[in-house]
Design a protein around this nucleic acid. Structure first.
Lengths: 248, 248
DNA sequence: CGCCTGATTGACGCGGTTCAACCTCAGTGG
DNA sequence: CCACTGAGGTTGAACCGCGTCAATCAGGCG
C-alpha cells in the first residue's frame, strides 16, 4: 500500500510536487535555501487532529499531499467546516500565537512545516513570500465568501448539487484523462463530512442524494461513486450561473 | 443635510481618522508622502452602489467613514451579504482586474481611493503596506470563517444576538468614551441589510428582535437604537464561548 | 392629505431537523 | 465457516423553526 511515501518528500524543494503553487512558489534560489533549512515534513493519518483551536502554534505549514479540514465546534456539539486545505494550501497564521480553528486530517496528510518565528522573520525580510501569501489569502477569502452564499441562502438540494459540481470540476481538472462517457468520481469524504461542510444533517444529505438519483441528475455505484450524465443540468440544480468553467 | 463633508477629509494623512488602523497604519513618512500623492476622496450616498461584480476595478480604497456591504445575488433574487466594510477596512483586490462581488454603500460612505496600478507597484516596493494588508486580509478571513459557523449552524435568535454582539463590540472599541450605563448604539443598517447578512428574512429579524426585547436581553429606543444591559447575557444568547474580548 | 418605504405582527405551510428503526458491509474472533 | 459487532448509510414519521403571504402601522416627503 502507498504508505511510507512521506519520506519520499524529504528532498530538495526543487523536486517538490507543490513547488510552483505553494507559498514558496515565487521564491528565488537564495530564499529557497533558507526555507530548505527551516522545513521539516510531518505525516498525519486520516482522521487525526492536526491542531485544536486555542493551541499554541509552533509551526506554519504547506499541505504537500492529502486533504485537511478546518472546522469550528460549538459547545453543544454543532459543527461547521469552514475550509478545506488541499495540496499547496497554506496552514497557520503569521503573527498569531494561538490557532483560531480546529484542523483535522481528512485523508492521510503530509505537511511541509516551518517554525513560525523564523518564518515570520523571513516574511519581513523577503517580500516574495509575503506577496505570495497575500495572494493565497485573498483567494481563500473569495472562496469563503462564495461558501457563505451557499450556507446562507441555498436549499439542501442546491447545496448538495453545488458540492458535487465543485468536486466534479476539481477532479476533472486534476489531470484525469477525459473519459468519453459521463463524468464520474469517488466521494472520498463521508456523509458526515459532507453534512458538516454544507450546514446540514447526514439524514438530509442522504435524502437529497437519493432524490437527485431518482430524478436522474446523478447516478450512483455503491455509496461512494457518483456519475454525472449531464453536468450543465447539475449546475442548474446548484443554482449557479451556468457558466460552466470546465470547458469553454 | 450632512453632505459636503467629504471635502473635510482632503487633508494630510496625519489628520486622518483611520490613520493608525487602515492599510497605511505602519507607513513611515516617506511612504505616506507617496500615498498622499495617489489618494483621492470620494463620497457615496446611502444605498448607492460602489461597484458591481464583474466591473473593472480602477481603484482600491480604504473606508474613511460610513459602512459598505459586500454581497452576492442569485438569479432569482436571493441575496447574501458576505462582508461588512467599516471605517479603516480595505476594499479591492490587488492583482485582480474585475470585482468578484457587489459592494454597496449601506450608509453614506467616504472612501480614500488609490489608483490600482500605482498602488500595486507600491505594494511590491514597500513591504510595510503589503505586510499590513496581509494582516488585515487574514483578519477578514478569520471573520468570514466565524460567519460561516453562524450561517451554517446557528438559529435565528443566535444569529441576531451574534450580530448585535459584534456591532456592540466594534462600537465600543471605536473610540467611544465608555459610557458608564448599559452599552448602547445605533443600528446604522436596515432590517433588510441585517436579514441579508444573517441569511434570514426581514420578518424573522423583526420577530427575533422583539423576542429578545421581551426577554430583556436587549432594549430598544425607536427602531434603530439598541441598549444592551448585560453583554455577557447577549454573548450567551449568541452561542459563543463567553470569552468577552471587549476588555481584558 | 396621499403615497411610499421600512417595520411589525399574524396565519399558515413547507423544508429540514430530530428521533428511531433498519440496512449494509467489513472486521474479528469463535 | 458463520455469528457478532460496530461504523456508515438509508428510510420513515413527527415535530417545529423559519419562510411565505398578507394585513397593518409608523414616519418622511411631495
Amino acid at each position: 500500500m502507498a504508505r511510507q511515501q512521506s519520506v519520499q518528500f524529504a528532498k530538495s524543494c526543487g523536486d517538490c510536487p507543490i513547488r510552483h503553487r505553494a507559498v514558496c512558489a515565487n521564491c528565488e534560489a537564495d530564499e529557497l535555501t533558507i526555507l530548505e533549512g527551516l522545513k521539516s515534513y510531518k505525516t498525519f493519518a486520516a482522521g487525526e487532529p492536526i491542531i485544536w483551536a486555542g493551541d499554541h502554534m509552533h509551526h506554519v505549514a504547506s499541505v504537500v499531499t492529502g486533504v485537511a479540514a478546518i472546522s469550528q465546534t460549538m459547545e453543544d456539539g454543532r459543527r461547521q467546516m469552514v475550509g478545506l486545505l488541499l495540496p499547496s494550501d497554506f496552514m497557520g497564521r503569521p503573527g498569531r500565537e494561538a490557532a483560531a480553528f480546529d484542523i483535522t486530517a481528512a485523508t492521510e496528510v503530509v505537511l511541509c512545516r516551518f517554525e513560525r518565528k523564523p518564518f515570520e522573520q523571513l516574511l519581513i525580510n523577503s517580500p516574495t513570500i509575503g506577496h505570495r501569501l497575500l495572494q493565497m489569502t485573498l483567494d481563500e477569502l473569495d472562496a469563503a465568501r462564495e461558501w457563505m452564499l451557499l450556507l446562507g441562502r441555498k436549499t439542501a438540494r442546491e447545496k448538495i448539487s453545488s458540492l458535487l459540481a465543485i468536486i466534479a470540476r476539481r477532479e476533472a481538472v486534476l489531470g484525469q484523462d477525459l473519459t468519453p462517457g459521463p463524468m464520474a468520481f469517488d466521494l472520498h469524504i463521508t456523509r458526515e463530512a459532507m453534512a458538516d461542510y454544507l450546514g446540514l444533517t447526514i439524514e438530509t444529505v442522504s435524502r437529497q442524494l437519493t432524490a437527485l438519483r431518482k430524478d436522474g441528475v446523478i447516478g450512483m455505484e455503491g455509496k461512494r461513486r457518483i456519475l454525472i450524465p449531464d453536468f450543465p443540468r447539475l449546475l442548474d440544480e446548484a443554482g449557479d450561473d451556468a457558466d460552466g468553467g470546465l470547458v469553454d
